[in-house]
Design a protein around this nucleic acid. Sequence first.
DNA 1: CCGATGGACTGATCCAGATCAGCAGGTCGT
DNA 2: ACGACCTGCTGATCTGGATCAGTCCATCGG
Lengths: 238, 238
Amino acid sequence: MPLVRKLGAFVALSRAEIAVLEGLRKRRRTFVAGRDLVHQGQSDQAAYILMSGWACSYKDLADGQRQIVDFQIPGDFLGLRSILLHMSDHSIEPVTDIEVTEVLKADLLTAFTQTPRLALAIFWAASRDEAMVVEHLVGVGRRDAAKRMAHFLLELGARLTLIGEGSKAGFECPLTQYLMADALGLSAVHVNRVLRLLRENGLLTFRDGYVTFDDYAGLTAFADFDPTYLDQVGPLLQ
Amino acid sequence: MPLVRKLGAFVALSRAEIAVLEGLRKRRRTFVAGRDLVHQGQSDQAAYILMSGWACSYKDLADGQRQIVDFQIPGDFLGLRSILLHMSDHSIEPVTDIEVTEVLKADLLTAFTQTPRLALAIFWAASRDEAMVVEHLVGVGRRDAAKRMAHFLLELGARLTLIGEGSKAGFECPLTQYLMADALGLSAVHVNRVLRLLRENGLLTFRDGYVTFDDYAGLTAFADFDPTYLDQVGPLLQ
DNA sequence: CCGATGGACTGATCCAGATCAGCAGGTCGT
DNA sequence: ACGACCTGCTGATCTGGATCAGTCCATCGG
């Protein structure tokens, strides 16, 4: 259902297309926090749609470090790209216990050719994900730690707001400071200091698994946050 | 022609599909180095296929810095994503004078619905581009300057080799040290020092618009370079 | 009840890479 | 033929964030 809403934001799906979409939802599965769901280099025959909980996609480096590429929240795809690229080029790990719906590669490819507009809608969703990765790259490459953190949390907040799990006041956030460090390219120690800085400046508070935006306007100005790349909605095809 | 070869690596395109592909190539255009081809926030009605020359896609920041997201070489798409996301979320600038083939948004979307397998092939090409952005993110987030530079030049070399414009010996490279700095999230000064370091260690030489891999094996080991994400070839559909 | 584990948090020290300030050669416009 | 500008290159200095080495809870399993 969240998927229909999400894709429906892009193309007005016909009854037939929604039927195909509903038809390919196969198996509901659950995974526990911390245990890899997809592993780097593994070739997978399925993608997943996240129904509840949070996950993250990341890459490991030879020296033991890792870079978290993105976090996934309910409604997001997991491992969509690895269906096309044969082999997954990254790992996916549940941050919390998660529920997913498994979609088999073969089914999805068939659906693509049967209902081209559906493929387009999913393509659009993937494009939006890529825009987020690009924004992430910009942050890691050119923003200092504080702006990077602020931008990151604002983006998460905006995404959660779209699925009704957050607002300009704040959101529930199961991430540890270690996870944020791996995402932002910082050390966990520095993540802690930056959070203190933002708190002391009255911008936001991260405490007990909850992010509070103490000054939303100030924060967006400080982080130079422009949510355009998330707002992309509306029928492109009529 | 390079496009047919590129997409053909993924799905065996039928004669009809190739015809559609050839059919939608519209206008050939040229752009001079340095003048933006697509500007951030602009809504465009066309995408381009790069025929000759190099370009780069980048994002500007409020404080005047910029982050180059990726370089495009002949055969690559320019602005494909902005066709789906209404509005371009980044700018594209020719690094050299370039020749492109313009493809109109409407034509492309029609082609997508007419020949689903073609859409799939283009989707695959986009996925590969995204994998490169991810790899780029990993480099900027977690690799030190030298490894980052080495990895970057190895990737460029591998991409150029695929289109017959490079080898394990090296490649012609029109990039300035300033451009590399903006791509790697470094200062131009440091780019220069890192290049000297790599040269002094007998790994690679960057001089007079040419990159020479003095020790290809040593370099891949040093940079922990794994070209898997570029090698993705072979028919997924039979 | 007690040890183990994991997450938040802190001070002290260190260093990779930024910044500042320059020089040298090439090319372009006038 | 003379600046102006771009690109490559360098030394000196400064700093944001890493690293090291902890403390202080809370939770959990036995």
